[in-house]
Design a protein around this nucleic acid. Sequence first.
DNA 1: GCGTCCAGGTCTACC
DNA 2: GGTAGACCTGGACGC
Length: 293
Amino acid sequence: MTIQLPPNFNLPSTINSHGWYDLPPFAANETKTELHAVISLSKTKHVAARIRAHNSVLTITVENGVRLTTTEKERLKNIVRSMLRIDEALEEFYSLCRKSPHLRWVPKRRAGRMLRSPSVFEDVVKMMFTTNCSWALTKIQTTQLTQKLGIETAENIYSFPFPETIAKKSDLWLRKEISCGYRAPYLLELCKNLVNNKIELESLRHSGLPTEELYWKLRSIKGIGHYAAGNLMKLIGRYDYLGIDSWVRKRFSELHKKRGVVSDTAIEKHYDRYGKWRGLVCLMEVTSDWHES
DNA sequence: GCGTCCAGGTCTACC
DNA sequence: GGTAGACCTGGACGC
């Protein structure tokens, strides 16, 4: 399957936009020119897909020779478009970057598209797993969750589980088998609320709700605080929040040659000048060295 | 190999 | 509204 790409799209920049490519079921090659993903087309059909780009064409190869109907192919392409943010309008953001010498590399490298999971649910769970722990532990939790509750789609490659599968497990089981510790009740509550239709996440990517309302909707999920909601907002396509964590604080101090602890208020004040794009500008600045080559 | 300490966000109780 | 303490894990460190 192929998708025609817009001129300002760059696959390696999108894969390398943040750490998601490193969390199962995502995987990427060393040069970030190839992304592997497991995409659930229905409750029972999961496909392992290899995604590459050449010139202005994106190629999706379904592994293991799985046959797809025309409808399933269209669904797969739409999910990939959403994951890679192919249709995201970034010209206004690029114009803003061109005005600042230190950001001119962003439109040149066609950076700024943030990789997201096939579903909002997967993004929320992974973000919950990044809170209050090392990246190594985030990987452990995500790996265990997919391996123990996902469906094996290719050799040792598992789909991301559905909320109903997780909701059937106990708090103790999740703590022991997923190593998610005190996050277990938060994860369970999220999944049970989704199963019982008390909350709905998948429409958030297309929501017309005001930004602040969306933010507080995310904050209403237990385990999603200011940092996690800020970063999830970016994945939804709203860049008003910075999603500051210890690593952003450290990188900000390094880049702006600040000694000692820099307060979050000071960091937020610094990026205020970029208006509704401030979250994305902050991300570009702190990850600028990832895009050098 | 074992024990101790620390870092990492969020929640809740308390002031 | 602001703050302290608990939550849990992996990793670093000292012995």
